[in-house]
Design a protein around this nucleic acid. Structure first.
Lengths: 220, 220
DNA sequence: GACCGAATTAACCCGTTGGTTCATTATTGC
DNA sequence: GCAATAATGAACCAACGGGTTAATTCGGTC
């Protein structure tokens, strides 16, 4: 069994160095994308040197991929903490939308990494292992909600969990990803606390409404 | 008065050269972003030379900005062609969503330029003149629809045209911008013709529903 | 047909930056 | 304590790529 990293040495501490590099690299890649990010800049903000970056991660692309992978796992783990088990389907759906909206806002670096990755046509994400299985879990949650909603006669029969997820993601993601251009085009009134509360509420409301069989009855 | 460019010369033709560079540059910048795009690559795909790119546009960033500006104007002009004047408010809104959804799909290069620009925090867009006034027009359309909808008692009183626009944009934009990562995470079933038709329909339906005062009455 | 400025070409420059070399120090297993 | 190995530091390198220099051609004008 390994000793805890902290006790191994007061000077050499590979895991900590690795984690330190990853932490800095994530911030930098999120800030300036893959090609504009300089390894020298990353190294400078690290407790260690440029030499070590290559020593631990091989090359720039591998470092970027490690960052992407770690960020993905971390964010997905955060999502798993949401508990909707004992809520009525419409309330569960609403809570899921609100949580997703907030969760995206809380993780702008992750959003930016995904933006960068989309510019690259997902070419680095392609190599990440166990991606599909991680994401199936996200859909499972919605499937259960939809199932319960249909069973109780509240939701439409032809509702698609994947399409629902797509819409929830679209609004939550866009809210963070396109803030810059949206603000330049239309002002920043939607991005103060009041504006964000409005968008969050409208997003939740429209998603729940669209899932209901008889939208007039409930009061979402 | 200028002679038509075509007749001026068989060899020298500045306007055409300029337009040629812009055309190629737009495709390249959209494909690989600002920093990964090589001026040499642009030049190679042009009828002219690298030197000419700098001759006409000064430097790389100015070229990128010219591309962004032209693409923006072009896309906004395309939007202006939509005519919703003599439709009932709910039908007008539905048609607007469907049009926006299709319009984004038809202009993936523009979407990618906006993605790139958001990665850059909109720093190049900031210098584009007459941006605000161009975009106010987009909101005006929605404002008129909302106004008519409220007047006829079909729409909610507290509806926000800007928040509505935000949601329409979110779905239309995300559908193109995040296709790569969404596909890797959840498969491509939403991106064939059938899947896209579903998303388009659900987007329109949920937007219209959310605008209605009494969602149960109409059949959106 | 000489002249001018705009348009064009080929060759070059040089700072930036991802990645390396080589030597040195710390740690671990025996 | 002693090899073997892992971790680190300083200086270095080569190519990539944005931008330039300087010399040339073209088209219109008087």
């Amino acid at each position: 069994m390994d000793k805890p990293a902290k006790l191994r040495s007061w000077k050499q501490n590979p895991e900590a160095v690795r984690a330190d590099i990853l932490r800095v690299a994530r911030a930098e890649f999120a800030r300036t994308g893959l090609s504009r990010t300089r390894i020298d800049d990353i190294a400078a903000k690290t407790k260690t040197s440029k030499r070590m970056v290559f020593y631990y991660f091989g090359d720039k692309e591998s470092l970027y991929q490690a960052v992407l992978e770690e960020a993905y796992a971390e964010v997905r783990a955060g999502e798993a903490e949401l508990d909707l088990e004992d809520l009525a389907p419409d309330h569960a759906l609403r809570k899921l939308v609100e949580f997703t909206f907030d969760h995206h806002r809380r993780n702008p670096d992750f959003i930016r990494l995904v933006m960068v990755e989309n510019i690259h046509d997902g070419s680095h994400m392609r190599n990440i292992e166990r991606l599909a299985e991680q994401n199936v879990a996200a859909i499972r949650v919605l499937e259960r909600i939809c199932e319960a909603g249909r069973a109780s006669g509240v939701f439409r029969e032809d509702i698609s969990p994947l399409a629902l997820h797509w819409r929830i993601s679209a609004m939550s993601f866009f809210n963070v990803s396109n803030r810059a251009t949206f603000t330049l085009n239309f002002g920043d009134s939607l991005f103060d606390e009041e504006g964000q509360a409005l968008l969050r509420e409208e997003a939740a409301r429209s998603i729940v409404l669209s899932a209901l069989k008889n939208p007039g009855c409930a009061t979402p």
